[in-house]
Design a protein around this nucleic acid. Structure first.
Lengths: 338, 338
DNA sequence: CTGAAAGCGCTTACAG
DNA sequence: CTGAAAGCGCTTACAG
């Protein structure tokens, strides 16, 4: 492999000069620059990031930490799209992405390596379960960092999330407009930082507009898996005065609920309206197609990464939390009650 | 951040000695080793990988290249599980994973950076579409590499894949045993290296055992998306002597086919038997639950990474291609014809 | 079992 | 606009 010395020799300049054209410094004459460029091409030179990282304290690598958590929750395509967004954006800026998917049960050692200065220039974390990512330890290293999802401390800085409150609000308002007054909720786990609180708030906001309040005995909980949706739907649908509609905090649980409904002879949407969240590809293919709130995970990843770069480049030290719009998608799983 | 010098000073030894305990060299006295260990802990020392990489030509990073290809094909949880397998295995060996998800349309520049020696110690590639990963350029750098999926050149070295032939064979044999003689096939795209050829061969093998041969006019093609399964099923199900069973090369297309069947009034499995491939989480939740061939993507990632480490450590130069068993799962979407 | 010293391939003040 | 030289934090023969 060619080194900077080889390039310097061939272009008849010093390594300092090569380094300067490498970093696009303006103070290099056009002809010198061209000679260096030619030599680099000729030699198929590409700089050693290890050497560069060692001397400049810049690695051109960012870390991406996505908790692996339970098998169920994270087979979601959602996560893959976030990763895609981060990866693509990083590449566009000449950065590489180091991926860590720590398991929940394991100590945070799996991403300790990331934290060493000179190893990554910053990190994007996907916040999910409370207490999962060791904020304190991360803070200690003062690495630039942005979170996708809500910060544990609800600190509204350097984090990106979907407009979960609005999504839930629109979903429930839609049900109310259709005439539903008995609305049940299948929630995600309460220790799941991503969105659960915000969505519950959205539900309350919509109900309040109609002079109603949220009856917590009509809220059941799942872990975002299809199975858990099935289970969480059972008690709700078995009640004597069962809800005529269900707001479910992700599409996969909504599928489980739909399955349960059909099992006990309830037809969606005639006997039961169903609103999901996420808009996974399957949502529009099932029968009936699911009314749901679309999120934009690629954009979450993209924006998070862009913000990280502005932190890294000291363009800003912190920024207010960014909210990515959602889109309410009406399909066939909702209708007037009865 | 503490450096190796700080540790050396505190432990009253040379940096050479610190380096030796770092690499677990046996020739260090127990008490010296302990002093060094104590100092490292006291100082919260963790070695700079950049420096280590520069001097040793070992980076403790492996590259993982997974083509992004079409949006449809790769929202599969399958891909995420492969990544998980690679990541976990790498971490267990103290390695980090650099992820690249090049887009198909873009030149291979996005992973060029990987190829620089001293940047990664080896790479795992996920082979999908023909010609997508520039083998020649990779070969030039002579980086240790293992492929998940089939190599373009069908070279049976340093690659890992599921037993696709056997999976297809079992699926079709199951249909034959049930009495089906008119069996259609919904195939993946033919330029998709992963498995399509092998699965087609499995179909032929099963048919041959029953004295039948594959009628290519009963083979249609999709791109692994739900929608494409729906479309590919249409002509097959519209034929006057329509097949009584369909072998579909992934579950998502099988879902699309199921949707199409129900649309034109065919009941699964009474009027049409359906066999999928992959066993995605949804397969057992839909109605009827899908008979399918389970793959083990985490294991694909795990084994690939283990093999890569044995290449990196020069334990072997190449190994014969490894085949990961599949598991045939009979559920409710298959029955006797008529 | 331990250490002095060179070297990995860059970048960065600094001088000219 | 260009270059000599120090330094980033490790590892690795080599000597003892």
């Amino acid at each position: 492999m060619a080194t900077i010395y080889d390039v310097a020799r061939m272009a008849r300049v010093s390594t300092t000069t090569v380094s300067k054209v490498l970093s696009n410094t303006p103070y290099v004459s056009a002809k010198t620059r061209q000679r260096v460029l030619d030599a680099m091409q000729e030699l198929k030179y590409s700089p050693s990031l290890a050497a560069r990282g060692l001397s400049s304290n810049r690695t051109y690598v960012i870390g991406l930490i996505v908790p692996q958590a339970s098998d169920h929750s994270f087979k979601d395509p959602f996560l893959l799209e976030i990763i895609q967004g981060v990866e693509r954006t990083a590449n566009d800026s000449g950065y590489n992405v180091l991926l860590s998917m720590p398991e929940r049960s394991v100590s945070q050692n799996s991403y300790d390596r990331f934290l060493h200065p000179g190893y990554v220039d910053g990190i994007v974390t996907f916040e999910t379960f409370e207490g999962f990512i060791a904020d304190r330890e991360l803070a200690e290293y003062a690495l630039p960092r942005v979170s996708i999802g809500y910060r544990e401390d609800h600190q509204e800085v350097n984090s990106i999330h979907s407009d979960d409150r609005l999504g839930a609000y629109e979903g429930v308002k839609h049900l109310l407009e259709l005439g539903h007054r008995h609305i049940g909720v299948i929630s995600g786990p309460t220790n799941f930082i991503v969105a659960v609180d915000a969505r519950l708030q959205g539900v309350r906001d919509a109900l309040t507009e109609y002079g109603l309040s949220l009856d917590m005995s009509w809220v059941t909980y799942g872990d975002f898996s299809i199975q858990s949706g099935y289970q969480a739907a059972s008690p709700l649908l078995a009640a004597k005065d069962r809800p005529t509609a269900l707001f479910v905090m992700n599409d996969r649980m909504a599928l489980g609920a739909m399955r349960r409904a059909s099992e006990i002879g309830l037809h969606v949407p005639v006997d039961l309206s169903l609103v999901g969240f996420d808009d996974v590809p399957l949502a529009e293919v099932i029968e009936p197609p699911l009314t749901t709130i679309r999120q934009f995970p690629i954009e979450l990843g993209t924006v998070a990464t862009q913000q990280l770069f502005s932190l890294i480049n000291n363009e800003t030290v912190q920024f207010p939390s960014v909210v990515i719009p959602i889109e309410f998608v009406v399909r066939g799983s909702t209708a007037c009650p009865g």
